[in-house]
Amino acid sequence: MIVLGILLSIAAIGFFCWLLFTLAVFALPSFAGITAGGWAHHTGAGWLGAILIGLVAAGLTLGLGQLLLGLVRPLWARLLIALAFVAPAAIAGYHATHGIVKHTMPSETWQLVFSVVGAIAVGVTAFARVTGMAATGPSIQSPARV
Rank of each mutant, 00 (worst) to 15 (best):
F85E: 05
P88Q: 06
I91F: 13
Q66H: 12
F85H: 09
L71Q: 14
G59T: 12
G63I: 08
Q66I: 15
L83V: 15
H95E: 06
A84F: 14
L68P: 00
L62P: 01
W76Y: 06
G65C: 13
P74K: 06
G65Q: 12
A77D: 14
L80V: 13
G63T: 10
L62T: 03
A89H: 10
A87R: 01
L60S: 10
P88I: 03
L80G: 08
L80E: 07
A92W: 15
L64A: 15
L67G: 13
A58I: 06
Y94D: 08
L62R: 05
L69A: 06
L68N: 05
G65W: 01
V86E: 03
A90Y: 02
L80Y: 04
L64C: 13
T61L: 05
L68I: 09
G59F: 13
I91V: 12
V86I: 13
P88W: 03
L62C: 03
V72M: 05
P88H: 05
Q66M: 14
A58C: 11
Q66S: 11
L79D: 09
Y94L: 15
G70C: 08
A82Y: 00
L62Q: 10
L79Y: 07
L64R: 08
T61E: 05
P74A: 06
A82D: 01
L79T: 07
A77N: 09
Q66N: 13
G93W: 10
Q66P: 00
L75W: 11
I81H: 03
L75M: 09
L79R: 11
F85C: 02
G93S: 08
V86T: 09
H95T: 03
L83C: 13
I81Q: 03
A84I: 12
L71I: 12
V86K: 00
P74D: 10
G65Y: 01
H95K: 01
